[in-house]
Design a protein around this nucleic acid. Structure first.
Lengths: 231, 231
DNA sequence: CAATGTGAAGACCTTCACAGCC
DNA sequence: GGCTGTGAAGGTCTTCACATTG
C-alpha cells in the first residue's frame, strides 16, 4: 500500500501530511496575532502535539527554521500551502443535498481555505432546480458534464449509503480522482483514485468505547485521549 | 499515550478499535442478506481491508471464529457491540445549531446505532426556543442542567471555532467525558476526557495533497489510497 | 544559549506464512 | 480442505536525546 513510487517530489509520510493542515491553521492564527517567528514549542502548544513531533514533521516539509530562533511564520505558511497544493483553488462537487449535503454546501470553512463548492447534484426530482445560495441543484445524470465544465477536482458523497457506490462510480467515470465519502458505506474505486471516509456514527462508536473503558477503571486518572480523526 | 493501565477488560489496540465499527456495519449488512457465517476474506471484501488484518483485529476482541468455517455472524455482532459498549444507549448533546448542528441533529444514522440526540443548545437568543423535530433548543447556560437531567454521555461541538473551547469547558464542567469536536479548533481538556476531532476542511486539504501528488507522477497507476479518517 | 534538525531507540501497526483445528 | 489464530518479520510512526548552529 504505501506506494513507494520514487516520484520526484519529496516523500512526506502520511502521518505528517495529516497534521499539516493543523499546523497551517495554528500558524495562520499566530501570524494574525502579530507573531513573526514561532517555536516548535509554541506550535506544539497550539496544536496539542509534542514539540518533537512538530520538529520532525516540519523537517519533512524541508523546513524553514532557524536554530536559536524558531520558524519564520510567513515562510512556513507559504511552504505548507505549497506542499499541500493550496496555492491553486479547488472546485468541489457535492452529491446528495440532504441535511448533510446542505450543511456542507453552506460551510464557510471551505471557501476560507481555498475550496469552492461549484456544483450540487441529487437524484430527487423535487430537489433538482432548487437553489442553494446561488447554486442550482442539478440531476445526478449531469454529474459528468458538470465535472468537466467546472473542472471539479474533488467529489463529496453526502448521499445515503445505498447510493454511495453508484455515485462514486459516476465520479470516477467523470475523471474525479479525489473523493470524500460521508456515506456510511465502503466504496471501492480503481487504483489511482483516493477516497477518504468520514463516518459520523463511527466516531461516536469509538468515543463510546473509550468512555466505557475509562468508566471501568475508576482508579488512576489514566491518559487523556487525543484528537485524531485524521490519520 | 497508549495508556498502559492494566485494567481488567482486555486491552484492544487503538487501530483495531477504530475499525470495529466498520466490521460491525459489514456484519449487520451481511447478516441481513441471510449469511450465517462470514469468513475473514468476505469481511475483508466488504470493508476494503485485508483478510490478515481482519483476523488480527477479531482475535483482539477474543474472537468467535471456527477454523475451516469462519465467524458466526450473530455472535460476532453481539461481541463487537459488547466491546464497543453499544449494548447501552447513549444520550448526546449538540452545542451549536447552525447548518452542521442541524444536519447532525437530523441524522438518522445516529439513532440507528444506538445514539440519541437528547439536547440542543445554542448561544443565539433567536434560536433558543425553536424546535427541531421534537427537541427544543435551549440556551447554552443550561448545558450543565441538561447534561445532568438527560444523562448526557457525549457532547458534540458544532459551533464556530471561537466558541469551541468555552463549550468544551462547559461540557467538562458538566461531567461529560467524551467530546466530538467539529469546530476547526484544537480544544484542550483535562486528563480523563476524550476528544475526537472531525475537521471537514482538513479532510479536503489532505485530499488535495494526494491529488496533486498523483497528478505529478503521470506514470505508473500508483497506489490507490484508502479510506481512513481513523488515524 | 536557545531552539532546530536528526540519528537511534522504542512503540505500535501491518503483513507474512504457517501451525493448528474443525 | 478450508479457514482461523498467531508468532515472527517488516514497516511506519513516535519519542528521546543531543550534536549543531545562528
Amino acid at each position: 500500500m504505501g506506494s513507494g513510487s520514487r516520484s520526484v517530489g519529496r516523500d512526506i509520510p502520511d502521518s505528517t501530511v495529516a497534521r499539516l493542515p493543523l499546523y497551517l491553521r495554528a500558524l495562520v492564527d499566530l501570524a494574525a496575532t502579530g507573531e513573526r517567528t514561532v517555536s516548535s514549542e509554541a506550535l506544539a502548544e497550539a496544536t496539542g502535539l509534542t514539540s518533537a513531533k512538530v520538529r520532525k514533521d516540519l523537517s519533512n516539509v524541508g523546513s524553514y527554521g532557524t536554530r536559536g530562533i524558531g520558524y519564520d511564520a510567513a515562510s512556513l505558511i507559504h511552504e505548507i500551502r505549497r506542499v499541500l497544493g493550496l496555492t491553486q483553488h479547488w472546485a468541489i462537487l457535492i452529491a446528495g443535498v440532504g441535511n448533510l449535503g446542505r450543511a456542507l454546501a453552506h460551510y464557510k470553512g471551505f471557501a476560507e481555505r481555498g475550496f469552492r463548492v461549484a456544483a450540487l447534484v441529487d437524484v430527487d426530482p423535487d430537489k433538482v432546480g432548487l437553489r442553494l445560495d446561488e447554486l442550482e441543484i442539478r440531476p445526478i445524470g449531469e454529474l459528468e458534464t458538470l465535472a468537466a465544465r467546472d473542472e471539479i477536482a474533488i467529489g463529496v458523497i453526502a448521499t445515503p449509503a445505498t447510493a454511495a457506490q453508484d455515485v462514486a462510480d459516476r465520479m470516477v467515470a467523470a475523471g474525479i480522482r479525489s473523493i470524500l465519502n460521508f456515506a456510511p458505506a465502503v466504496v471501492t474505486v480503481e487504483s489511482g483514485v483516493t477516497v477518504r471516509r468520514v463516518d459520523l456514527a463511527t466516531e461516536l462508536q469509538i468515543l463510546a468505547y473509550y468512555d466505557q473503558r475509562n468508566a471501568e477503571s475508576l482508579e488512576e486518572p489514566g491518559s487523556s485521549r487525543d484528537a485524531s480523526a485524521g490519520s
